[in-house]
Amino acid sequence: MKKNKNKYLKPKTNSLLKTDFYKNSLIILACAFGIYLLRNESGPLRYLVVGLMLLLLYKLIFLIQSAPEIVEEFFPPKVKFEINTKPIDQFIYKSSNYFFGLSLVLILFQIRRIDNTIHGINLFFKFGLYGALFGFIVLYILKLISPTIYDTGNRRFAITFISIVGFFLVTAATASFVNYNFPKEKPKSSTYLIKRKSLGGKRNNDHLLFIEFYKNDEERIEVSENEYNTVKEGEKVNLTTQKGYFGYETIIDIKSIN
């Protein structure tokens, strides 16, 4: 009797996943289009916008939860389960999880700094995309190091997701750190108008000011509770900013003129 030399169990497919994916994707696109068309509505239609946003979020969560299975359906892995996992594959898989945890820690330390950078969202996505592109290069290098690294669906999805998102976050956080800590110019002070104030975050612990830096260019900055309480909507404040290494100005001080 011949021994079974196959080390793997072949995966099964589920065509219903594709149907659900297409259906939910169309719903998400329709909701996004509806939200865009009704974005300026202030009457009863604004409740429709809220409903569309909730539906979009629900369907998006569903797609995220089903992402590993969806990827497997469109791009079937070579194997479903490994009986014997190579040490190098196991090492890369575990290391990627630690790397993702590190990326979350780094971005958490820079969130407020990015928030208090003029056009900080632009910095976040610009350098984050550079990081994501580098993540694709890393995925290719890992394939060269271990050709079997992407043989199983779960490991392939985890490493791909972590590499792209992880490097996105690490690069964005690093860019924010470098931009702030290695300025190109000396601090300067200017007067700006506070358009509005708001409380946000869990239990309204975030104190936010929306300041008009240029015409039709409103930026949100996070301040301390004391700074928040000493300024009012519609009044002007004196901001001290400093141009960072990458040319993005960071806010280092805020004072009420009155």
Rank of each mutant, 00 (worst) to 15 (best):
P68L: 03
S256L: 08
I221E: 04
M53W: 12
I145P: 03
V105C: 04
L129W: 00
Y248S: 03
Y192P: 01
I111Q: 12
I64D: 06
Y228V: 07
Y248D: 01
T13C: 06
K186N: 10
F75A: 08
Y36K: 10
K10C: 10
S198W: 06
K202T: 10
N205W: 00
N84D: 15
N226S: 12
L239W: 05
E235C: 09
N6K: 14
F182A: 05
G128P: 04
G135P: 12
Y180K: 13
S190T: 12
S189K: 11
L144H: 08
I159Q: 04
G153S: 14
N226P: 00
R220L: 12
Y47F: 15
N238C: 07
L106N: 02
G234T: 04
L48T: 09
I61V: 15
S146P: 05
R39Q: 14
L16A: 12
F99Q: 02
E219H: 11
L133T: 01
M53I: 13
I118A: 03
L123M: 15
Q242F: 07
K3A: 13
R46H: 13
F21P: 04
L123G: 10
F75H: 08
N226M: 09
V50G: 08
V223R: 02
Q90Y: 13
G135F: 09
L209C: 10
L55Y: 06
Q110D: 00
A132F: 08
Y228W: 15
N238K: 15
F213V: 02
G43D: 15
P44E: 11
T240I: 07
E69G: 04
R156L: 09
F91A: 15
Y150D: 07
I252V: 13
N204R: 06
N6Q: 12
P187W: 02
L26Y: 07
I211G: 08
Y58C: 12
V237Q: 03
P147R: 05
F177L: 14
I141W: 07
L56D: 09
V165T: 09
E249F: 10
R156K: 11
V105S: 02
G200F: 01
T85E: 14
E185P: 00
L108E: 06
L133Q: 00
Y93T: 12
T240H: 00
N84E: 15
S66F: 08
Y245K: 10
G244W: 04
Q242C: 07
T152P: 04
T240A: 02
F127T: 02
T13M: 11
L29T: 09
E219L: 04
D206M: 06
E212F: 00
L54V: 14
F177D: 06
F134A: 06
F81C: 07
R46Q: 15
